[in-house]
Design a protein around this nucleic acid. Structure first.
Ligand SMILES: Nc1nc2c(ncn2[C@H]2C[C@H](O)[C@@H](COP(=O)(O)OP(=O)(O)OP(=O)(O)O)O2)c(=O)[nH]1
Ligand SMILES: [Mg+2]
Ligand SMILES: [Mg+2]
Ligand SMILES: [Zn+2]
Length: 573
DNA sequence: GCCGTTTTCGGCCCGACTGTTTTCAGTCG
């Protein structure tokens, strides 16, 4: 969350939209509230600050009316219109549209006829009745709602990218084995490299929709959610939903564009198409009823007067405007990565030996690799004492000789930032290392000010080169500790200390948004794996995707530099 | 409720699947 006040106002507008939807208000009015909310979320400035200026800048999607409501919130910390709405409709009720198959209309009918207000009320209603004729819910509808409630109560939630991606790949392999399948592509949020995904979206190119969809329904599943002529949705045993979409070859490019999203990006593109006198859908780009030939996604973007936009950028977060202004970033690629600068061995809590790590790095064609085991106070992670650190340095010295000409090895450490902001090793030790990472592993509960200060003092240390996993979050497990990321990025830029994008899929820390902010503040970004096991080394791709989503270019990164450029940066002056 | 500028009114992305519908509303992608 970048700005607390922006987030608050955005969520107020979203709640208003939900309430209006429940009350069956005009769909475009509802969308206006949702658009404004999204637009406020994407601002790079605190909205309170924007409106404290004499001539506040225009915010996209905010007109007279919503501007008034924003000002009201800034002055009174509330919006009367929302309070009025919440008197009419219970907030807990329209939130239940998160239950698959239960939408605003059904909820409203239940509310109107049966006065339901809570999930318990709804459960009672649908589990004690096999049909509710007066609100046109017969046996099948009731059954669907029951299934939706069950899934909801089992805790339907998003999946980390690193969990979803291997499952998606495996499904792609299985689908390729089906007869008459020509091409299969992962689409949706997985293709966009989003840190968590709601489901898997898989596009299939075929001529024989009938036989392929039958075969899809034979894939392992616990429920068929929907099955029609062009799409099949399955629920897997782990409660992950998979949406398969079938298209013929002619539509493949436009279908891939459609199915990759994001929704908001698609809406923008289709709007541009309209304004150019075209129509864009998953079947193609049309002028009147004539189809314009588009063989690739790039053809579609070009026909709309845009350049190709990579999937990781398709979020309607400025990529279309950037494209039109010829300012689209040329984002970093996996192939640009020249080495991994955050790796653990069995000296601390890693599983590989020093030499194994080096050999694996060579296999991956890296120019350099840093060994950065934990420092002494990380005792749960078997952190190295000063003595063991020097033992390791000796061993690394020998390996540097042994692997000369094959790879550059950097001897380093991941040094804990202690409660008081001091580092775990003193400067006399740090000066003997080729590279120093500093990170927080304790004292998460400190105030924002204290944690920010701790990190800044590490940034200012003449030997610290990288701040690892700067916010400490673990997706689905631990919230980030509070820090002032803007301020940290400014100091990092000034002191030539890089900020890490930690590629481990539960971290992805910095996240996409923070990375973009850090780049704009001039900070260098380093994409590391924080490897503890051999397979961790291959998680680099998740960090790269996150970097792309943060608009990070090759030139913004530390570990895209060649070895001599890297050594120069590590000197910090 | 917002937006544009051959528009200050009339658009606002577009389509698939399901159930209960006898022609479409609701939900979802
Ligand atoms: N044009 C258009 N496309 C949509 C709409 N909803 C979804 N799509 C497209 C873009 C999405 O990326 C794609 C898959 O839909 P999903 O609901 O699975 O969304 P997505 O994968 O982006 O996010 P997720 O992580 O699954 O929540 O379908 C829509 O309302 N209009
Ligand atoms: Mg999806
Ligand atoms: Mg989907
Ligand atoms: Zn580490």
């Amino acid at each position: 969350m970048k700005f607390q006040d922006n987030e608050k106002i955005a969520s107020i507008f979203e709640t208003i939209a939900d309430a209006l939807e429940f009350l069956n208000e005009n769909a475009f009015k509802i969308r206006a509230y949702r658009n404004a909310a999204e637009s406020i979320r994407n601002l790079n400035e605190s909205i309170t600050e924007i409106y404290s200026k004499p001539n506040p800048k225009k915010i996209e999607g905010v007109g007279k009316d919503l501007e008034q409501k924003i000002k009201e919130y800034i002055q009174t910390q509330k919006v009367a219109y929302l309070d009025e709405l919440l008197e009419k409709v219970p907030y807990t009720l329209f939130r239940l549209k998160d239950i698959r198959g239960l939408g605003p209309r059904t909820l409203y009918k239940m509310f109107e006829k049966y006065r339901v207000r809570t999930l318990e009320d709804i459960k009672k209603l649908v589990f004690e009745n096999d049909e509710l004729k007066d609100i046109s819910l017969l046996e099948k509808s009731i059954k669907k709602i029951r299934e939706g409630i069950q899934l909801y109560e089992e805790g339907q939630s998003r999946f980390p990218l690193g969990v979803a991606y291997p499952i998606a790949k495996d499904l792609v392999d299985r689908v390729y084995k089906i007869d008459n399948v020509k091409k299969v592509e992962i689409a949706g949020s997985v293709r966009r490299g989003k840190e968590t995904v709601g489901d898997l979206d898989i596009l299939i190119c075929t001529k024989d929709f009938n036989s392929v969809s039958k075969a899809l329904a034979n894939l392992e599943h616990k429920q068929i959610i929907a099955m029609g002529d062009t799409k099949v949705s399955l629920l897997l045993s782990n409660n992950m939903q998979v949406d398969f979409r079938l298209v013929n070859e002619d539509s493949f490019a436009s279908a891939l564009q459609y199915f990759s999203g994001s929704k908001e990006h698609n809406v923008r593109l289709r709007d541009i198409a309209i304004k150019k006198g075209f129509k864009l859908n998953e079947y193609g780009l049309f002028e009147k009823d004539k189809k314009i030939e588009t063989k690739t996604e790039e053809d579609i973007y070009n026909a709309l007067g845009l350049c190709y936009i990579k999937p990781t950028l398709r979020e309607n977060k400025g990529e279309i405007e950037a494209c039109l202004a010829n300012k689209l970033p040329n984002v970093v690629e996996l192939g640009d990565i020249k080495g991994d600068l955050h790796v653990h061995t069995n000296y601390s809590d890693g599983l590989m030996s020093l030499e194994e790590v080096i050999q694996e790095a060579i296999k991956r064609n890296y120019d350099y690799i840093a060994i950065t085991d934990h420092s002494v106070s990380s005792y749960v992670a078997n952190g190295l004492s000063v003595e063991r650190l020097y033992d390791q340095l000796n061993e690394i010295d020998k390996l540097k000789d042994k692997y000369k000409g094959k790879i550059h090895i950097l001897a380093g450490s991941e040094v804990d930032i202690k409660q008081n902001g001091e580092l775990d090793f003193n400067d006399n030790v740090l000066k003997d290392l080729d590279i120093v990472i500093a990170s927080i592993h304790q004292g998460f509960a400190n105030s924002k000010e204290i944690n920010t200060k701790r990190i800044i003092s590490a940034i200012e240390n003449p030997y610290v080169n990288i701040i690892a996993h700067p916010t400490g979050r673990l997706i689905g497990q631990r919230a980030p500790y509070e820090i002032d990321i803007q301020k940290i990025a400014e100091y990092a830029a000034k002191h030539k200390t890089a900020l890490e994008i930690n590629s481990f899929y539960l971290r992805l820390d910095l996240n996409d948004e923070h990375a973009r902010l850090a780049k704009n503040a001039g900070a260098k970004i380093c994409i590391n794996t924080d490897t503890h096991t051999k397979e961790n080394l291959d998680y680099m791709i998740y960090g790269v995707l996150t970097a792309q989503r943060g608009w990070i270019e090759k030139s913004d990164c530390l570990n895209t530099l060649n070895y001599s450029q890297l050594k120069q940066f590590l000197k910090k002056h």
